[in-house]
Write a protein that binds this DNA or RNA. Structure first.
Lengths: 224, 224
DNA sequence: TCTTGATGTCAAGGGCGCGTCAAGAAGGCA
DNA sequence: TGCCTTCTTGACGCGCCCTTGACATCAAGA
């Protein structure tokens, strides 16, 4: 799913954008100022950023430069300023597109699709290796002893969340909400069933897991 | 030097753009209608296209589709039409940006720089070979046991997307949006029908595919 | 040793996603 | 206009995946 980071200091605009984007199947993160935007971008690795230029703390162009210091993800600027100089500055700082407010939602969504479409797929280190299995996050495939292991969608989703937080503890609540949806949070029996299945498919000794670890009372942890 | 193809049916606009671009060190080709634009693009291999939508012979969106059939060079649409639907149609057809007339030259140049900057260096399309069929992405042809296989446009498009992501899983949503358009995403029955047709035409044993694989609940994968 | 709460294991059913087939609709071409 | 190809849509059955409940196991504390 495409992840969008919406940056604007006006909550109602953020809310309106978030609702529209989620309705179209996008995954939405939000930030209310430049600092939060830079943190969220580093944290959540969005696929595209919608950036308002008029932020309370940092100038929007500086946010663009900050992002461009380490990533080439598409940045679409939203701004009430029509001045040519503003547009040139933002585009030359590294923005991909510049949309002036007020804008039509249809047009914005089309520009968003265009930006995502031409984006170079981010190739981070998507392959995680342990001594008993290998997880390729980009290709969505898991292999063990050279042979591919078939995972069901839920099994894969759960494994993916754990691997993306490799080494860190992920609470049961966080796992449930990420994999099953925000309205879940207490159905820990799901986790028990699926963790057992993952261990059976991936661990050499499923009853003494070395990579898919339980932290009793807290959650689970993937150890590389 | 960056080569720009300017397409517009009004000579004075072409001239004004050409002068400005040449003054900035761009190499400029021009075309006055859609046919000439397609020919010039194939002939001269520009690095970016400035395309007016209101051409006398072919609809601008058709020109975009024609170009996108074989190249991903940036296309910036220039148009007097402000209607949202026009913009959406052009962007979804494959345009990278949409600038409404009248536009500021500074802004256009900035958008031009942005488009060129993020352009992916053109890589030639390779030939993908499996033990039962061969896909030539550049020539848009598929052969099996030495003989060409006829694919319908949709079949080809679907196969192309899968082959370009060889080895990686492509989600049903991504496939639908890429082949049928961004407003699709849930019509998985299309995928079932067309995957079955591709398998029937390309796989030795269509009911046990070895290259066009289903990942239940997640998507499809082409395996070389 | 017993109790308690949390985790691991197993099996069964119901639902739904997928493959398959075929007919109707739409579009291109003579 | 009429034919042919291609795309869309519906129906159906099979198999698999998710869910759920029951029970076993384990660790910690009294």
């Amino acid at each position: 799913m495409t992840r969008v980071l919406v940056v604007d200091d006006e909550p109602q605009i953020v809310r309106a954008l978030a609702i529209n984007l989620k309705a179209r199947g996008y995954d939405v993160d939000t930030a209310g100022d430049g600092t939060a935007a830079l943190t969220a971008a580093a944290d959540r690795h969005p696929d595209v950023v919608l950036l308002d230029l008029g932020l309370p703390d940092i100038d929007g162009v500086e946010v663009i430069k900050g992002l461009r210091g380490w990533t080439r993800i598409p940045i679409i600027v939203l701004s009430a300023r029509h001045a040519s100089a503003e547009k040139v500055a933002a585009l030359d700082a590294g923005a991909d597109d510049y949309v002036t407010k007020p804008f039509g939602m249809d047009e914005l969504l089309a520009r968003l699709r265009a930006a995502v479409r031409r984006a170079v797929p981010e190739e981070e280190a998507p392959v995680v290796v342990t001594d008993s299995f290998t997880v390729d996050l980009a290709a969505k495939r898991v292999s063990r002893d050279g042979a591919d292991v078939r995972l069901t969608p839920t099994e894969w989703h759960l494994l993916e969340v754990l691997v993306r937080h490799a080494g860190r503890l992920v609470s049961q609540r966080a796992l449930l909400q990420e994999v099953w949806g925000p309205q879940y949070g207490t159905e820990t029996n799901y986790l028990r069933v699926y963790m057992a299945q993952l261990r059976r498919k991936l661990e050499h000794d499923p009853s003494h897991p070395r990579h898919l670890l339980t932290e009793p009372g807290m959650g689970y942890r993937f150890e590389g």
